[in-house]
């Protein structure tokens, strides 16, 4: 009897004791971000579970993207801290991959699709390391996973919005991270791209990786995500989609901005 079976056997004999709780993929405590005097994100606590797909949901200007960027240290925070799999952010950089909004860069930049994906290998290649054939193979494999294999040598200015989003996702895949953080990955993309992206993200979850996405389309929250975090400058609610994404919490998040009938429909009859 090998060690693995043995441990299984002993565990089976025991009452289901609380396993040493796996640390959450991302935990944020007391995060406050302010442009000038009024806070964009105020004193927010949030916990995103490992091996699950989580949505960050809230109205325009609610600080969704700001929250994500500040949690990753991309923009300065006034207060608060973030841990990734129980470690301080800077010790866990190799385990996270970030996908910015595609509108945040200039797509006329002189570079090819493959070179963008190779940027995802920056930490592995290092400042002075050589980019080898195996790095290029890795990058091409990531392009295959998002259905863009034929586009490797294109100038990035020739891509559609959906293709740009796929390239950004491929770059993050190249990082081979355990936590993927995406800012509005479905904004302004076509249906085929949305399907391709969600398939990749569900595949990542299937491999035990965590996905956290800023998401604006309330109608797909239920079908895409396991966990939801509702924010409007402050934290409104968080938890499993089934119990947290309710008419009541949506009303609190959006105030009067959603019609009552629409809210009930989105909340899937729970209300």
């Amino acid at each position: 009897m090998d060690a693995a079976t043995l441990s299984l056997a002993t565990e089976a004999g025991r009452p289901p004791l609380a396993a040493p709780a796996a640390p959450p993929a991302l935990a944020v405590r007391g995060l406050t971000v302010s442009y000038g005097q009024s806070p964009a994100v105020f004193s927010v606590d949030a916990t995103f579970p490992a091996a699950a797909m989580s949505a960050i949901v809230g109205p325009n200007g609610a600080g969704k993207s700001t929250f994500l960027k500040a949690a990753l240290g991309i923009i300065p925070r006034l207060s608060g801290e973030a841990t990734v799999f129980g470690r301080p952010l800077d010790e866990a950089r190799d385990r996270i991959a970030y996908v910015p909004q595609r509108a945040s860069v200039d797509w006329d930049f002189p570079t090819s699709v493959l070179d963008v994906v190779l940027m995802g290998l920056y930490r592995r290649v290092g400042l002075l390391g050589r980019i080898t054939g195996s790095h290029r193979t890795t990058a091409r494999d990531c392009l295959v996973r998002v259905g863009m294999a034929d586009f490797a040598d294109r100038q990035i200015g020739q891509l559609s919005g959906g293709q740009q989003q796929r390239v950004f996702l491929a770059r993050a895949l190249a990082q081979d991270a355990d936590l993927y953080l995406l800012d509005e990955p479905f904004a302004g993309v076509d249906a085929a791209t949305e399907r391709a992206i969600i398939d990749v993200l569900k595949g990542l979850r299937g491999e035990g990786r965590a996905v956290v996405a800023v998401h604006h389309d309330l109608s797909t929250v239920r079908s895409y995500f396991d966990h939801v975090f509702l924010i409007n400058v402050r934290r409104i609610a968080e938890g499993p989609v089934a119990t947290t994404f309710t008419a009541e919490t949506l009303q609190q998040t959006y105030g009067g901005r959603l019609a009552t009938g629409h809210v009930a429909e989105l909340a899937g009859g729970i209300a």
Binding site: L72, R93, I96, A97, Y98, P100, V105, F109, R123
Partner: peptide
């Protein structure tokens, strides 16, 4: 990296 996508560069540390 910074010239193309400064936010992404920051996310890499």
């Amino acid at each position: 990296l910074v010239a193309f996508d400064a936010e992404y560069a920051a996310s890499l540390g």
